[in-house]
Amino acid sequence: MSTKASRAAARLMISPSVILLLGWMLIPLGMTLYFSVLRFNLLMPGDNPFVGFENYRYFLTDPGFTAAIWNTLALVLGVLVITIFGGILLALLLDQPMFGQGIVRILVIAPFFVMPTVSALVWKNMFLNPVNGLFAHLFTALGLQPYDFLSQAPLASIIGIVAWQWLPFATLILLTALQSLDSEQLEAAEMDGATPLSRFWYIMLPHLARAITVVILIQTIFLLSVFAEILVTTNGGPGYASTNLTYLIYVQSLLQYDVGMGSAGGVVAIILANIVAIFLMRMIGKNLEA
């Protein structure tokens, strides 16, 4: 049992982390909330008057906002669908006996370690470029017209790039979960004459359900904040075609210097992220008790 003295020591040891994180969270958060009700533009020095919910009204009725919300949704859902389905297939594949399994696994997870700016620029120039990209070469070799991915289908291209980065993460987590499956159960099912498909559907998939949920929740948190990939490939365009919420707020606050509006957008982004976070926290909290 812990003594009173050790408990006091424990509190002392935890406090630096708590104080730092508390400050890190509360100070900027408080400022964001405060700025969001001011008319505050860095290009127009003045006394930054209180304007109530005006910034929110402008932000929420801005045509860019509607576009950004849909793009954010499409980006998150698109990447989730690709990485979950691809991840399950890859995990099943990598779980099979084969030669050089370790090396294949290394090849598959590699994209996760590539920094976002590098993967975005490599895809943009060396693959998707309509003149010199590999896909353009491939298309002309097949007798097709080269396709300008980033201006014809900017959002889909970004979804592809981001999915390539996150596929390894989903695969790795699903593979880890798959390997914790009791193989006796599978053997018993096989002896009872269950087909591979029904083995997957009735035994593997329920076992993976938890890992899939974790992948969805964690990826969603990160995917809501995709930024660098958009910045270096399309700059959010053409128009608002590939602007997500994060990028829209960046444009308003750091390019248009509209602190008030950017802050109102920030509050909206925080609320959206929190909806996801609540579910994620509940799952992790359950695990903590077990």
Partner: peptide, 22 residues
């Protein structure tokens, strides 16, 4: 522990403006 984790859920863009100004 859970609270510490929750700070990770804060989208960076939500505090971009204040942090930039600070």
């Amino acid at each position: 522990l859970m609270w510490m984790l929750s700070t990770k859920m804060l989208p960076p863009v939500g505090v971009l403006v204040p942090l930039y100004l600070i």
